[in-house]
């Protein structure tokens, strides 16, 4: 579902390149984790995949389509969950979702059905008419995910979907992602939480300094690196020095 070849990107006035010939691929309909320390190039990669940033060199294919040349076709088939809560805080969850659903061109009846379905699935049906700003951190994260699911994308890209949420919300989100994947949808997500990635992902790619460090199934990587956990693999490959 994702093939990246020799992707390069240096932001204007940046001291160092963000991506330096990054190449990786994830198989169709898998749950794939894009992992790396701060400044590794995860967000730049996601931004290139979403068309928000243009790569200096290399190419990226999502669902077999070129992200630069076939953006429109890609858009209707993927859903992106930004790291921050990209919802209007003064509007209710219902109002936010209605607006986003209308932008996707969903009919009124279908939109109503999907909103109700996902609000129930994510345990937000009782808070549907409450303004987002009154939601807890976990509720906001869940609503943020629903907003990217209304058109039921083939591939869901999530940037740190569980950052700063309580254990229950995190568990709920991970369970949902697993079940959504079982329905035949692919998932790419970035995270700092390696235990979570180990538990959820079919395959992972660890990147650092804009390059691929290692790629494979979590269990295989642990065996290769003779490590007890993915976190140990991560530290062995990216070092223990602090990152800004």
């Amino acid at each position: 579902m994702l093939q990246i070849q020799q992707l390069e990107k240096t932001y204007k006035n940046a001291a160092e390149p963000s991506l330096q010939g990054l190449s990786l691929q994830f198989s169709d309909k898998s749950i794939a984790g894009l992992l790396g320390p701060n400044g590794a190039g995860k967000t730049t990669t996601i931004s290139i995949l979403c068309g928000l940033v243009k790569a200096d060199a290399g190419n990226a294919m999502l669902l077999g389509m070129d992200v630069e040349k076939e953006r429109e076709a890609i858009k209707s088939r993927i859903g992106v969950v930004p790291q921050s809560i990209a919802l209007y805080p003064t509007l209710t969850a219902m109002e936010n979702l209605q607006y986003i659903g209308r932008l996707y061109g969903l009919s009124t009846a279908l939109l109503k059905e999907r909103i109700n379905h996902y609000l129930q699935l994510f345990g937000l049906e009782k808070s549907a008419h409450k303004a987002i700003r009154y939601y807890s951190g976990g509720m906001k994260r869940r609503a943020n995910i629903i907003a990217s699911l209304l058109h039921e994308p083939e591939l869901l890209i999530l940037d740190e979907p569980t950052a700063g949420v309580d254990v229950q919300s995190r568990n709920m989100i991970l369970q949902f992602l697993a079940s959504y994947n079982k329905l035949g949808h692919g998932i790419i997500y970035t995270s700092h939480l390696l235990e979570e990635a180990q538990q959820l992902c079919d395959e992972i790619a660890i990147i650092d300094h804009g390059r691929l460090v290692v790629q494979g199934k979590p269990t295989e990587l642990m065996q290769e690196q003779q490590a007890q956990s993915l976190e140990q693999v991560f530290l062995q490959l990216t070092g223990s020095s602090l990152r800004d």
Binding site: C50, L52, S76, P82, S84, A86, Y88, L103
Partner: peptide
């Protein structure tokens, strides 16, 4: 632009200009 809404909006099929 800061909170990611632009990213979400730009990923919606069709021209961003109508939004």
């Amino acid at each position: 632009r800061e909170d990611g809404s632009l990213m979400r909006i730009k990923m919606i099929p069709g021209s961003y200009y109508s939004i």
